[in-house]
Amino acid sequence: MPLIEFQQVHKNYPLGKTIVHALQGISFDVQEGDFVTISGPSGSGKSTILNMIGCIDTASEGEVVIQGTKTSSLTDKEITELRHRTLGFIFQNFNLIPVLSVYENIEFPLLLGDGKDDPYKSWSDSEKKDWINYLIKQVGLEDYAQRRPSALSGGQRQRVAIARALATKPTIVLADEPTANLDSVTGEQIIQLMREMNQNLGTTFIFSTHDPEVLKVADHVVKIRDGMVEDDYRVVEAGA
């Protein structure tokens, strides 16, 4: 069973008196452990697709199935739980909580959830601490753990966001143009970091970009144009 299935997904946005057909019958699968790039020009529908996987937005037609569950059948509370348990988010403009330190930002998702199926709810305080410190080390911010986001560079902020997205050990991490606000060198480092985490932890990463350079790193590319799938291919033994 694929981890994620898009089945003939349509999305229409009302815009004044007209309707924007943002997605026009999108279908593709994502397997567990994939490092997926959704690529395409501006306005092609990349954010819309990621928002649907993130259950932040709903399909107008068709189904988004995550781990065998049709997301359209879930209540707001169930969706929140699913997001919390299964998904991690990385945003283009980082979206860190400004009043929390690097450490606390990464710790924050561990505060959430009703605790029913969350593995980390049973962790001891020292286990939690070790895990957060491990993530901080993985993203190379050991010396910045107590800083507030305002005292970090964009690349450092995005590293915090990556660590935070991984805090709850989610199955899937979604990243909408994580490099858009970064210079190309830093952006490349961020993609590399995500790739390492994908390989070390087995987490499925799905990220959007319109930077063709990035495609080289991905092992699964979904190209979108005008709300339709233009291309969908896997790179065997990517990076090997």
Binding site: G54, I56, D76, K77, T80, E81, R83, H84, R85, G88, F89, F91, N93, N95, I97, P98, F108, P109, L112, G113, D114, R164, T168
Partner: peptide
């Protein structure tokens, strides 16, 4: 607004 949306995306319930 953005911060709240972000918290909700991470799994904060409306009640939180």
């Amino acid at each position: 607004v953005a911060e709240i949306g972000n918290m909700r995306a991470m799994g904060a319930q409306a009640g939180n």
